[in-house]
Structures are given as structure tokens and as C-alpha cells.
Amino acid sequence: MTELQKLSKQGRADYIREKLQELYPNPPIPLEHKDAYTLLIAVLLSAQCTDARVNTVTPALFKLADNPYDMAKVPVEKIQEIIRPCGLSPQKSKAISVLSQILVNEHDGKVPDDWDALERLPGVGHKTASVVMSQAFGHPAFPVDTHIHRLAQRWGLTNGKNVTQTEKDLKRLFPKESWNALHLQIIYYGREHCSARGCDGTVCGICTTTYPNRKKPKIVLKP
């Protein structure tokens, strides 16, 4: 039995962190933005939509309005027309309009550097708030989307009940100072090596290294 086969869950986590740091030492934020507000809007749009698609839509949206004061004046119908390719445009356009008004009326036009205030904004759940808190304000956070949830299961880092449990499990396994970069590193690795269709838990380097005796596809529980 090799040393990797003997690894505990913590041992696998340590190996994975080292490997991802080697592959992606300085992972960029995949959503194009210029400040906390444009990042917030981009993350909101990314729900059930690819980052690449969001990045094709936001230039036109931000040309129209790239701050809450201007966005609050844009008719919801106009916002919806622009963001339609991202899907869920009726809900997302209304959320963008209303949260922009709230930022103007309650936060002096600034995105709040506060968990509770962020999560109270329409269209902003815990995952979106986590991205903004980590990438805009530098607070330790571990945003978990369906892709990270899938990889964490394949790598034996969580039992896969839901994204909330996965976030707790990952936070226990990885040091806090690594969280902000690590969630991006996992996303990039998943896209390039361990995608939903490209790997079933028996193909990519991390899967085969951490589970060399795995012969059957790893069944992943959806959140």
C-alpha cells in the first residue's frame, strides 16, 4: 500500500491544497468587475449561468449603469433585456434594481462590508455574499457552489449532503488563510481537469492519486 493510499481525510486535504497551489499559485477572479458593486452584480448573474456567459453580458449592463445610483434609475425591463442570456432574467433584473435602490437608500451607495447586510439584499444568498466578502473585502470565506460540492465529494472531503455541510467540512480541513484562494483554485481545477462530464472520480490526477484503487465512478449527491 502506497503512502497516498494510507492518507486520512486530512492527509488528502493537505495533498490537494499543495497540488492546487502548485497548479494555480495566483488564481484570478473569473468574473470581470472593477469594484465591489460590479462584482456583486456579476456574482448574482452567475446563478445557474456560466462565468463566461456572464462576462459577455456585463459589459453592456455596466455601460448602461455601473453603480447603484445609476442602476436604480434604469427600468427593470431594460435590465432584463440585457441580462436575458444569463437566464432567470425576470428574478435577477428585479433583484438588481431593488438591491441598487437599497444600497442608495440605506448604505450611501456602497456595498456593505457586512455578512448580515449583504445576505438581506434581494437575490443575494450566502454563496454570493461569501464571494463578495472574500474577493471584494478580503474576509476569509469559502464559497461553495455545485462544482466545488461535486469535487469535494469525489475527493472524499465531505459526505455530500448539501452545500452548507460541504462548506463546514472544507473549512475544518483547510486553514483559514487558504480559503479565499482555494475556492478559486478548486473551480479552475474542476474546469480544466475534473469537470462534471470529463471526470467521474476515476480520471483526473487528483482523483486517481488520492483514490488509486477506485474502479467505479464516484456517485455524487446533488445539493
Rank of each mutant, 00 (worst) to 15 (best):
P217H: 13
W155P: 03
V132Q: 06
K168W: 13
L20S: 01
V144P: 04
R84S: 12
I41L: 08
S8P: 10
R12P: 00
L151A: 03
I96S: 02
A65P: 04
T208A: 09
V124A: 06
P175K: 09
Y69N: 13
A136P: 00
P122S: 14
K19Q: 15
I186T: 08
K171C: 15
A47R: 04
L151T: 01
L45E: 02
Y189R: 03
G198D: 01
F142Y: 12
P140L: 09
I79A: 03
I29G: 14
H183Y: 06
H33C: 04
K218T: 15
P122C: 13
R84C: 07
T128L: 07
H147G: 00
K215M: 11
K92W: 07
Q101P: 09
S100T: 11
R53E: 07
V163S: 08
K222T: 14
E3A: 15
V124W: 01
W115A: 10
G109E: 05
P68D: 05
I96T: 02
K63H: 13
V54T: 02
G201D: 04
V203T: 13
T50P: 01
V131C: 11
W115P: 11
A136C: 09
P223R: 01
M71P: 04
L184R: 05
K218S: 11
H149G: 04
L173G: 02
T38C: 08
K6Q: 15
A60T: 14
R150H: 07
K127W: 09
A72Y: 05
L4D: 12
W179D: 09
P217Q: 14
Y189F: 11
K78E: 11
P143M: 12
Q48P: 01
H147F: 07
T164N: 14
A13S: 09
D116H: 13
N105C: 13
G87V: 03
